[in-house]
Simulated scan of single mutants.
Amino acid sequence: MPSHADDLSVALRLADAADEITRARFRAADLVVDRKPDRTPVTDADTAVEDAMRSVLAHERPADAILGEERGGTLGAGRTWIVDPIDGTKNFLRGGPAWATLIALVDEGLPVVGVVSAPAFGRRWWACAGGGAFGTFLEEAPRRLRVSGVASLEDAYLSTTDVNAWTQYHSRERYLALAEACWETRAFGDYWQHCLVAEGAIDIAAEPIANAWDLAAVQIVVTEAGGEFTDLSGKPGFDHGTALATNGRLHQAALAILNG
């Protein structure tokens, strides 16, 4: 497997540039908020971050394609950078700290680099294909991430973003059945729940609706931490519109309930 260490360095620099912008605009009194055609919000910080990352990539990786939530693009067969300037925009615009910039490099359809930067939490997670997953908190030294060893659903911690979304996009009944089979449930939501799976703080994260830019970066963080990442039917990948991230041991049991 080729090394992507240089690409990871680029991704970390992109995250630094993004953090500088998002910190300055977080809780800003003059934050500009618009609504996209799908009714999701977008702020001036979202577009500024994506534009800044695209500028860096145009210089650092001019031959690579880019797919971004705000400026578009396509997922090609070769190398494509997938960026979500602010995952959790609803939290960002209301002053909640649970948001992050997501950066992934996909090569031949597989994520090979992923960075998740959540500056309001003082957290960052990253992974490189074959190199493991790592995370930091504030100024601590990076530590290698490993998923939990929980082997039974009755001992498992489950999270989703919005229970109501299951009614529209999959099955509220199936999700509630999984919740009832688990020990505890929360709604950490968005990127955060997948990163918590990677670091072993929770065991299952499930999403009935998601985009490629929501999932590419967290997929490699989860899998490099020893977990499993598929869509809700069990198909591996980040671009199928749904997601199930687990510690691996619980994956088939969760799939069986969600598709029962």
Rank of each mutant, 00 (worst) to 15 (best):
S3H: 05
A5Q: 08
A5K: 13
V10Y: 02
V10C: 09
A11C: 05
L12S: 11
R13I: 00
L14W: 02
R23N: 10
R23I: 12
D30N: 11
V33S: 07
K36C: 01
V42R: 07
T43H: 03
T43D: 01
A45G: 05
D46R: 07
D46M: 01
T47W: 02
E50T: 00
D51P: 00
V56L: 15
V56M: 13
V56D: 09
V56P: 00
A58Q: 09
A58F: 02
P62Y: 12
I66V: 15
G68N: 02
G68K: 07
G68S: 02
E69A: 04
E70H: 08
E70T: 02
E70D: 01
E70C: 13
T74D: 12
T74H: 11
L75D: 03
W81P: 03
W81E: 09
I86F: 02
D87C: 07
D87T: 05
K90C: 06
N91V: 01
P97N: 02
W99R: 00
W99P: 00
P111F: 04
V112H: 08
V116R: 06
P119H: 10
F121E: 14
R123S: 14
W126F: 15
A127V: 03
C128S: 15
G130C: 11
G131K: 09
G132M: 08
A133D: 11
F134H: 14
G135I: 12
F137H: 14
F137V: 13
V150S: 06
E154F: 07
E154K: 14
Y157C: 05
Y157R: 15
L158Q: 01
S159R: 04
T167H: 06
Y169C: 05
Y175I: 13
E180V: 09
G189F: 00
W192H: 13
Q193F: 00
Q193A: 08
H194A: 15
A198F: 01
G200I: 11
A201N: 11
I209D: 06
N211H: 12
W213I: 04
A217W: 10
A217S: 14
V218M: 10
V218N: 11
Q219V: 07
I220N: 05
V221E: 01
E224H: 04
E224A: 10
G226D: 04
F229L: 05
F229T: 08
D231Y: 07
S233I: 03
P236A: 15
G237W: 09
F238Q: 09
T242I: 12
L244Y: 11
T246L: 06
T246P: 03
G248C: 10
G248I: 07
L250N: 08
A254T: 05
A254D: 04
I257K: 08
